[in-house]
Simulated assay, not measured.
Amino acid sequence: MKYNLLYFKIISITLFLVVSITSCTLEKENGHSGTIKVALREAGNQLLLRKLDSTSLILPIKELKPQVYLISFEKPISFEPSDVVTVIDSSLNLLSLSKNYRVEVVQCTDGEVAYSYQMNIEEEQTIIPCAGRNLPKACYHIKVEFLEIISQSSFKKRWTPYVLIFGILMYAGFLYLRKFKKQPISEEKNSSYSSIGSFQFYPEQNKLVKSATEISLSKKECELLEIFVANPNQIIKREALTKKVWEDNGVFVSRSLDTYISKLRKKLKDDDSIRISNIHGVGYKLEVDDVV
């Protein structure tokens, strides 16, 4: 159960990191979208100014779908296609935006494309049809679609690092879990312990084990029990116990030994075959019935 919980924690942390990275990416994309809208609004403003129109409104820039935007105008307008090419390219360059995009001048009435062209960072892939034919005054939308962002190669380029990070974290978690699962078995095999009746005493780990139940021991309890286990069924004088356990550990109070002996008795009470007896005026003895 505890290993499943550990694995769940590893998965949760990994997913948290991936979600955090994704969130940061989305935040960057949202910021990128806002920058594009600013650039396209400026492009619309420049087109109006070229027609000496400084009063007509540019309607809010719409994002039709990821990386596809629409410029709309309050009033009908006429276009010189070369102005559209120049103004949009200049506005995007001003904010260091993508050079790979497609532009369509769409008629509001029927949705037909009145003029279109494609720009690309690779000159041979740039397509600009004849720009000398003016478009008559009418209602137009200008649709700008950024190409490389939605391309498959760009998607792979963007997400591949995150997939790799996720895979590395998952693999690291698997290795850690496998090591962690093996560790208790290794400890049980390699840790030395002494048998006291039905108990297993692990002095290095300060614990008793009985039927898979662990009983923690304090440092003093562990040191006292070590002495008793090394000398079963033998009387150990009080002076010897106090000297070995308290000699280099500060001030010894006369009742301290009795207090710790009482604590040990409570922790050993579940096995009737072992007991710590008080030898009046002398000391204590660990009595173990099965010692030969």
Rank of each mutant, 00 (worst) to 15 (best):
R275C: 07
E74F: 03
L47Q: 01
I149H: 15
V288W: 09
L57D: 06
G44F: 00
S262F: 05
N231F: 06
C139T: 06
D289P: 02
S33M: 10
I128E: 03
L57Q: 06
L177F: 12
I13Q: 07
L47M: 08
Y176L: 15
K210F: 04
I235E: 11
P136W: 08
Y115L: 02
R133Q: 14
G111K: 02
E148A: 10
V282T: 11
K37L: 03
S273T: 13
Q118M: 13
L217K: 01
V105M: 03
I196F: 02
S12Q: 07
V103G: 00
K182D: 14
S186E: 15
F79M: 04
I58H: 00
F16W: 06
R41H: 10
I127E: 08
K220G: 01
F252C: 08
E145L: 00
Y101K: 00
M170F: 15
Q183D: 11
I196G: 05
G132F: 04
Y101D: 00
S198C: 09
G283P: 07
M1Q: 12
A230Y: 04
K267Q: 11
V251W: 06
L6P: 00
L17P: 02
K156S: 08
S82W: 03
N100P: 05
E29I: 13
M119S: 05
S72V: 01
E221M: 05
L59K: 10
L135M: 15
I235H: 04
E124K: 12
L208M: 08
L217Y: 03
V288P: 01
S56Q: 04
L94M: 14
V253N: 07
T86D: 12
S90E: 13
I58L: 03
K99Q: 15
T160S: 14
L97M: 12
P184F: 07
E148V: 10
F8M: 13
T160G: 06
E74P: 02
A172L: 15
S194L: 14
E80M: 09
Y140M: 00
A212T: 14
R50Y: 05
L135I: 14
A138Y: 08
Q107N: 08
G44S: 07
L26W: 06
E29F: 03
F16G: 11
